[in-house]
């Protein structure tokens, strides 16, 4: 095994906007954004699962794009605008209703990541086709195998958005 290279850990003050609120956090250079959101800010909807960018459970929306928060260092997020599942719930997005009504979860650990990714899709493309939904959700893994329900739920939510049912 290669010996690990010692990189000194530095601390820095960063400020970013999470769900509309401005946060100022003292972060270490090796903290991921997922760790800061989940453990430092207590937004536990952003789940850690694989911690290597494979599963999508930790997805958050940063400046309109869905990103994997386990692959982003918090120290690099200074000045960014971040939206998490808590923000989407607070806005009473039709996706939540569609996800509950379509039973898109079994254990439910991956579900917030799916909702965040789907929200980013609907922000960009309010009336996606089935293929486009599948393509957008390709980076999210669900070991319970709930994939068919996700497509139905996102299409239903898009339909509701089109009819103007939104806060």
């Amino acid at each position: 095994m290669e010996p690990e290279k010692k990189v000194p850990v530095v601390e820095e003050e960063v400020s970013f906007s999470v769900n509309g609120g401005l946060y100022q956090v003292r972060v270490q250079s090796n903290w991921t954004l997922q760790y800061v959101l989940h453990d430092e800010l207590g937004l536990t909807g952003t789940k850690e699962f694989c911690n290597e960018g494979a599963c999508g459970a930790c997805a958050v929306i940063m400046d309109g794009r869905p990103i994997l928060s386990c692959m982003a260092l918090a120290i690099e997020c200074d000045g960014q605008t971040i939206e998490t599942i808590e923000g989407i719930t607070g806005a009473k997005h039709p996706l939540i209703e569609a996800y509950v009504n379509h039973s898109c979860m079994q254990c439910g650990y991956c579900t917030p990541g799916f909702v965040v990714t789907a929200k980013a899709l609907l922000d960009k493309n309010p009336s996606p086709t089935e293929e486009e939904v599948k393509e957008a959700l390709v980076g999210n893994l669900c070991r319970c195998g709930t994939y068919p329900q996700h497509v139905k739920a996102v299409l239903a939510a898009a339909n509701n958005l089109q009819r103007g049912q939104r806060v």
Partner: peptide, 15 residues
């Protein structure tokens, strides 16, 4: 409906 569906979809469920 799943009785735990809302908690799980909103990320409020505690693991």
């Amino acid at each position: 409906r799943r009785i735990d569906g809302y908690e799980k979809a909103t990320g409020a469920a505690k693991y």
